[in-house]
Design a protein around this nucleic acid. Structure first.
Lengths: 226, 226
DNA sequence: ACGTCCATGAACGGTGTGTGAACGACGGGG
DNA sequence: CCCCGTCGTTCACACACCGTTCATGGACGT
């Protein structure tokens, strides 16, 4: 996803923390020139302008960002309760606003709704490890940007492993956590699924799943670098 | 000015006080029938739905108000901090939201901005995905510029799927979000509607709706953007 | 070198899904 | 008021897929 432009520079820590927590990439830009200079090739996904400290400067920034050749949109404004009245006659400077002090959950919900209604679409939940990407929304997996055709159990198994990279799981643990019930006999079932996963991961990436003899399986590199 | 529709009936006192203070006329309506019965000749100016006490009922009210012949808009939702997460997948039910406990100044600012942006800004009443076009105003669908003859439920199902392209939905989710009520048995109902949709989409575009085995259905391709 | 553990291939059985058809509720027209 | 067409729902059946199991051979460690 393209980054959000954040104003001012440096941005308030609670804002950047909330953005990080929500998983939105961002870049701080103090002025219009910085906004142009830092702009990625794909353009900005939107902007978040904090008018908590120096509101007049923030409003000026909004106006400048809106007057670009490609006006920055959507634009979310963060404003204190005392300054609410000043939003009048400035309706065109922002698409939504959020009251300070910031509530991370509210910020996330507002960004989500903002992106939805402006048609940019929302950011899918992803699990990434190296070239491997798991899209939790679409139940799709890809490696080297090429989609993997995984069955349901293969996907669930890989998702569980990839969410705990480096950690070794016994077959019993995998059976109870992935399959979800206590299992009597049949620990070899895991082996077969591991093997099919390795096959579909291409020989090049088969080493992503390693066998730990007489213990179980591990995904990714060990934290000790082996 | 035309009155605002307020839900529920009776509305919370702090909400009505804030509306009075801001100078917005309003009428409380508990259900869809009351909304129709009390509607002035000039129509509603918009709606304010409070989901503070009985959120499920409030969401149902939003859905009903949006499904009228002339969907109620703009619609402002009042929701508690704890319920923020439940707004996901319900983005189409409201145009803006406001956190409870209510701050009169914030409510006033949001209503003002809401009316400003719905007055000037035009919301596209079209959903497009590839060659597929859904006209939300006329309840018509077309693919390859050829009209599709969809029934009501088929249209609603396709609209919901196309609004969240790439995302996988279980049958239970579809039943609760599209059909709109809790369902006992009959998950196969979804299958049949999916099949008829695929048939009407022409074999050429039937792949727009994909089945994810033992999970559910997905519309369109996934977005692989980071 | 032996035993344990694991990879490999193939085959079985179950479950989920597509498909066709029919039932029943609802609404419009004769 | 009845008939009939439409549409949503349900049921039965068949098939493809996929999870599971088994048998076998090889790899690793003691």
């Amino acid at each position: 996803m393209e980054p959000l432009l954040v104003h001012p520079e440096p941005p308030p820590p609670n804002l950047t923390q909330a953005l990080d927590r929500a998983g939105y990439p961002w870049l701080a830009a103090g002025g219009l020139d910085a906004a142009d200079r830092l702009e990625p090739d794909e353009g900005w996904a939107g902007a978040v302008v904090c008018a908590e400290d120096r509101p007049e400067e923030a409003f000026a920034a909004c106006r400048a960002l809106r007057k670009r050749d490609v006006p920055l949109s959507p634009l979310l404004l963060i404003v204190t309760h005392e300054r609410l009245a000043e939003l009048e006659l400035r309706e065109d400077l922002f698409d939504d606003f959020c009251l300070a002090p910031l509530q991370p959950a509210e910020l996330e919900a507002r960004l989500k709704h903002l992106f939805w209604r402006t048609g940019t679409g929302t950011r899918p939940e992803l699990i990434e490890y190296g070239q491997l990407v798991l899209n939790l929304e679409t139940y799709q997996a890809a490696i080297d940007s090429r989609p993997l055709d995984l069955t349901y159990m293969e996907y669930e198994l890989l998702k569980f492993l990839a969410t705990h990279p480096g950690k070794v799981f016994t077959r019993e643990t995998l059976l109870s956590r992935v399959w979800g019930y206590e299992y009597y006999g049949g620990a070899r079932t895991v082996d077969v699924h591991i093997r099919r996963l390795r096959a579909k991961l291409t020989e090049e990436h088969a080493h992503l799943i390693q066998t730990v003899r007489s213990v179980g399986y591990r995904f990714g590199q060990s934290r000790w670098g082996i």
